[in-house]
């Protein structure tokens, strides 16, 4: 490398460092407002601050790509993000697959739901569960994805996937989370029986869980539960004056 090249490279590295510093401060300031450290805020303000943090962290990941065009797993660092919007995005990408299978795929609607998780991992878990539902629901059928808070006081975020298929017998629900397990009636479907098992392992790594049961109108209901990290931290931070989304 010639001297001018080195100067240019070092100067570029300095600029990237300064941009990272600025993004770091934006992230911290917005996160402090988001988490009520500067006083009570509204649900709308919470959502906007969360979005600022998300954008700043994403911008940092883009800078990383300048240095490393083939980022490894560190790209998907845990962070607070809108799980409902995230699930909508993933479900949107499965639309074509659903259409090809003659299934109506209904994406989650409604309010933002923020949780602290690792997006790449959570995305894999959602895609596995939705993909599983599409695969085992007879055509014409329906797969509905819902995102919301569990009404059991835990405030956990639940991503539920409900299908109009034949459902999973109660006695088989637990073993469906074991690698390689499949129902005898599904033997004609290609596959390895790993989809739900992998989703279960991912959720365990994220500190959450997976529940398999029956949908209200028949069919299977598979729910991914993410612990409410924000509220747990928040309880420790303030006196509870702040409104929550």
């Amino acid at each position: 490398m010639t001297a001018p090249d080195r100067d240019s490279s070092e100067s570029a590295a300095g600029v990237v460092h300064d941009i990272r510093s600025a993004l770091g401060l934006i992230t911290s300031l917005a996160a402090n407002v988001r988490d009520g450290l500067d006083g009570p805020i509204s649900a709308g303000q919470f959502a906007r601050c969360s979005r600022i943090v998300e954008i700043a962290v994403d911008a940092g990941a883009l800078l990383e790509r300048l240095n490393n065009p083939n980022p490894i797993a560190e790209e998907g660092a845990p962070r607070m993000f809108d799980v409902a919007a995230f699930a909508r995005d993933i479900v949107g990408r499965l639309d074509l697959d659903a259409e090809r299978r003659g299934i109506t795929l209904v994406a989650p609607i409604g309010d933002s739901e923020f949780a602290f998780a690792e997006p790449l991992e959570l995305g894999r878990a959602i895609a596995n569960v939705v993909g599983n539902a599409l695969k085992f629901t007879p055509s014409p059928g329906r797969v509905v994805v819902q995102v919301g808070r569990v009404a059991d006081g835990s405030e956990a975020i639940e991503i539920a996937v409900l299908d109009s298929g034949p459902g999973i017998p109660a006695e088989a629900c637990a073993r469906m989370l074991r690698a390689g397990e499949r129902l005898a009636r599904d033997a004609h479907h290609p596959g390895t029986g790993l989809g739900l098992a992998i989703a279960g392992e991912i959720m365990a790594r994220l500190g959450g869980s997976i529940q398999i049961g029956e949908a209200a109108g028949g069919g299977a209901r598979v729910a991914l539960l993410i612990p409410s990290e924000r509220d747990r931290s928040f309880d420790e931070i303030d006196s509870g004056e702040r409104s929550t989304p």
């Binding site: 590295a13 460092h17 300064d18 990272r20 510093s21 993004l23 770091g24 934006i26 992230t27 911290s28 996160a31 402090n32 988490d35 943090v53 700043a56 962290v57 911008a59 940092g60 800078l63 990383e64 240095n67 490393n68 660092a77 845990p78 962070r79 607070m80 602290f116 990290e229 924000r230 931290s233």
Partner: peptide, 27 residues
């Protein structure tokens, strides 16, 4: 705000326990 693999390496060499690059959610 440094994020190069070399920085991670030096942090480890110098005895750091953890290396975090900004921007990072303070959570």
């Amino acid at each position: 705000s440094k994020a190069d693999p070399a920085d991670r390496f030096w942090a480890k060499q110098c005895g750091a326990s953890v290396f975090l690059s900004k921007p990072v959610d303070p959570v």
